[in-house]
């Protein structure tokens, strides 16, 4: 979406300048143009750029406290250099990649399927829609607590059900074989509705006449799904995917309560490692370097993903 809208702006601007013939309306336009964008710019400047600059500066320093005062020591790129040797950070990057790609892929498929199913039925749409939207209403902290109990080795409902059908109980969160998968399951439960919401919104704005035409041509349901719905929805799918991927990359609350990154490093995720280094260990310099490296990493990922989708979009 982000890339396609810039295309739009680029093509729109030259005509616009030509159309605004006289100077008077141009000035008035400019006034409104600046005024309408100003609040967003101000918020971004004050509450995002400033703290991010702060992070960048921090990442080049060591901070010590004595007599209630801080002393900053410039250490250059030392923190960035030591990232390479941080085995916890490496483990967390890997886990987060696995976590977010697996979780988001499943969420996209399920969300799309649910959106298709919901839009294809006549009665009860409202009910299903409401039910599927429920999980995003629940604070992550509650999700963590409730699933922790459901996963519990000794008291959890999962092991009770497994026991009822003769399966050995498993320690879903405490055994490194299952822990990451368990977290992924929770995330799928929590965030599939989000994909569902965005995909359904896009599905319902698709032009009906195309379908009517294809009905006349005798296209099967699968054909119209494959050749009409999916291509038309590709931009929405891409946006939803990227959007969810970013959110998944930030996963924190759930992991914090469910496993605390363990057992071992099996569920250590990036924002948790950052939190640990930055706050728990109180190493803001090193933690900032880790944050900034992570942004760079994700930014790269997003650029690659949107480049790929754009190429696909332009060839089709």
């Amino acid at each position: 979406m982000y890339l396609s809208s810039t295309e739009n702006a680029r093509s729109a601007s030259p005509e616009g300048l030509v159309e605004n013939g006289s100077l008077q309306p141009l000035n008035r336009d400019r006034f409104w143009r600046n005024l309408t964008l100003a609040p967003a710019i101000l918020l971004f400047l004050a509450l995002t750029i400033l703290p991010m600059v702060n992070l960048a500066v921090l990442s080049l320093h060591d901070i010590d406290w004595a007599q209630g005062l801080s002393s900053w020591t410039y250490v250059g790129l030392k923190h960035y250099a030591s990232l390479a040797a941080d085995s916890l950070f490496k483990a967390s990057i890997l886990n987060t990649l696995v976590f977010s790609t697996v979780a988001v892929s499943v969420q996209m498929v399920l969300g799309f399927a649910l959106a298709l199913l919901t839009s294809s039925i006549v009665h009860g749409r409202l009910f299903y829609r409401t039910v599927f939207l429920l999980p995003i209403l629940v604070p992550g902290i509650i999700i963590g607590a409730i699933w922790k109990l459901m996963f519990s080795f000794d008291f959890g409902v999962l092991n009770q059900m497994a026991g009822a059908i003769g399966i050995m109980p498993r320690d879903w969160l405490g055994d490194a074989t299952y822990s990451l998968a368990s977290i992924i399951v929770v995330d799928i439960w929590h965030w599939t509705p989000f994909c569902f919401l965005l995909l359904l919104a896009s599905l319902e704005t698709l032009p009906q006449d195309v379908y009517e035409a294809s009905d006349i041509d005798g296209a099967t349901r699968w054909q119209s799904l494959w050749y009409i719905t999916i291509p038309l929805m590709l931009p929405a799918i891409a946006v939803t995917f990227v959007f969810r991927l970013i959110l998944a990359f930030k996963v924190f609350d759930e992991v914090y309560l469910l496993t605390g990154g363990g057992p071992g490093t099996s569920t250590e995720v990036v924002s948790f490692t950052i939190f640990r280094r930055f706050f728990t260990e109180d190493r803001p310099g090193y933690g900032s370097a880790m944050s900034i490296t992570t942004f760079a990493f994700i930014a790269l990922m997003i650029i690659v993903v949107s480049a790929v989708t754009r190429r696909k979009g332009s060839t089709s």
Binding site: L47, T48, M52, L55, S271, I274, T294
Partner: peptide, 15 residues
């Protein structure tokens, strides 16, 4: 997009 990637926890201290 970039800001959206930042885990909010890292900005909380600065805020």
């Amino acid at each position: 997009v970039i800001f959206h990637m930042v885990p909010p926890i890292t900005l909380a201290g600065a805020w």
